[in-house]
Design a protein around this nucleic acid. Structure first.
Lengths: 242, 242
DNA sequence: CGGAAATTTGACAACCTTCAAGAGGAGTGG
DNA sequence: CCACTCCTCTTGAAGGTTGTCAAATTTCCG
């Protein structure tokens, strides 16, 4: 757990030895989630933060008629409910896509850590700010792009983020993306039928494939053009110290 | 300037006397913006944060074909680019809707303030988290709701936020909303024609009117139902201290 | 092996966007 | 003062895209 969190924070923030040591003393306990299981629901007031250790979790809101809208997806090292540290009531739910393992870290322990090591607090603040930057991009994507570009942009983002822990971000390769087409529809705001036809259309471009929860990128440059994808908004590297 | 910021932060965070005093010593300078003028553009690396003093400003992204997608709107007391404190490069632009006055507060002064008065830093952190909560809601609204509900929800949010500085949030009344229909289209992801017809449809419900940049709510309860509006996501009150 | 879920395909209707044009106002310059 | 332009709002019509309905096929899982 500790190494996962430390690596994530160090991807964009400088932590000194004392910060790292303090991180290593954070208490937590693991929790295993089945496919589709909720880690936390809208309206609840959690007293622990979630750190994804394995698998993928998603944030979603439930609409008045029961439909779901997915908001974001999170992989190993991410803190999908960091905002709950300061916003007591959850305005959305978090569920597992496929089996997942998460660590539950008591809010209290994090808050005292922030007092003792402000650098850690700032790193997590930055984490939440990157989260918000991704939300902004999602607003633009779902509101303004036609289905093909919208789906392409989504695939680009997931692929780029999944591989950013390694050095080779773009280029050919695969990553895990364990969604159904129906869930992708609830992500991009399109009907299942349109999702299906759009994905087929994307496949025909020869830039990517997506099967059995695995996204395969065959021509990154072309896919990025189709999706108008510019990774600047992911703020992958912006170290700054107080 | 100082009183505007202090009131905003105290709306959701407890500040002690020393925090307030430190806020009052923040340096800044005013800047007047003409209608449509950009306060800051995508790609820039600001060294000051923006605080809205008068009027309204909007965040937006520019798409590959030059179209605009508005992301959020900000009124007196809000910090529309607080994230730039820790994410150096702007991933969006900020412009004025109608004439506006903003205060520019040097990042350096804010960062040293956070070191001396962590409570102020936390208050602004919470501010950015509420920002993100609004983004989540916008994703849901623009992705999943039909035009009428989408527009109704948008009007509800703007009205509720504009009036939250006073005690009477819901109920009958007016607030400033100086957008054109075309700009509302670039906000909700609808064409001008659809915006026009949707607004007319909303007017016919008798719940609201919107003319000359003024939003008038005539039947708050019914409008909130039309827009499926639940203000919980605005986290208007959630005081918590370290 | 059987049943449920996911993917795929077709057809059609509804909706939205685009194109086009006119009305009303605000601001500018002759 | 009026003509002119520009912008916004409004309305109509046509065409295209997307959602809905329905059903077949494949895959997954017990």
């Amino acid at each position: 757990m500790h190494v996962v969190l430390r690596q994530k924070l160090q991807a964009h923030s400088a932590l000194d030895a004392d910060d790292a040591a303090a991180l290593n003393r954070l208490p937590y306990h693991d929790r295993h989630l089945a496919n589709g299981e909720d880690a936390i629901c809208q309206g609840e007031r959690p007293d622990s933060a979630i750190l994804v250790l394995e698998g993928m979790v998603a944030r979603y809101q439930t609409l008045a008629d029961g439909r779901r809208q997915f908001i974001s997806f999170h992989i190993t090292g991410e803190l999908p409910d960091a905002q709950a540290l300061f916003l007591t009531e959850m305005d959305h739910s978090i569920c597992a896509l496929g089996p997942a393992v998460i660590a539950m870290i008591p809010h209290e322990a994090l808050l005292t850590l922030f007092m003792r090591r402000p650098g850690v607090g700032l790193a997590i603040w930055r984490e939440t700010l990157i989260d918000a930057a991704i939300f902004r991009s999602t607003i633009v994507n779902n509101s303004a792009r036609a289905p093909l570009a919208r789906a392409a942009h989504f695939f680009c983002e997931q692929y780029y983020r999944a591989r950013s822990r390694f050095s080779r971000r773009g280029e050919v390769g695969t990553c895990s993306l364990p969604l159904s087409q129906a869930q992708l529809g609830d992500t991009l705001g399109m009907s299942i039928v349109t999702v299906n036809r759009t994905v087929q259309q994307l496949r025909r471009t020869g830039t990517m494939d997506w099967n059995d929860g695995v996204l395969q990128v065959k021509n990154w440059a072309k896919l990025a053009v189709l999706g108008e994808f510019d990774p600047a908004y992911l703020h992958a590297r912006a170290p700054r110290r107080l």
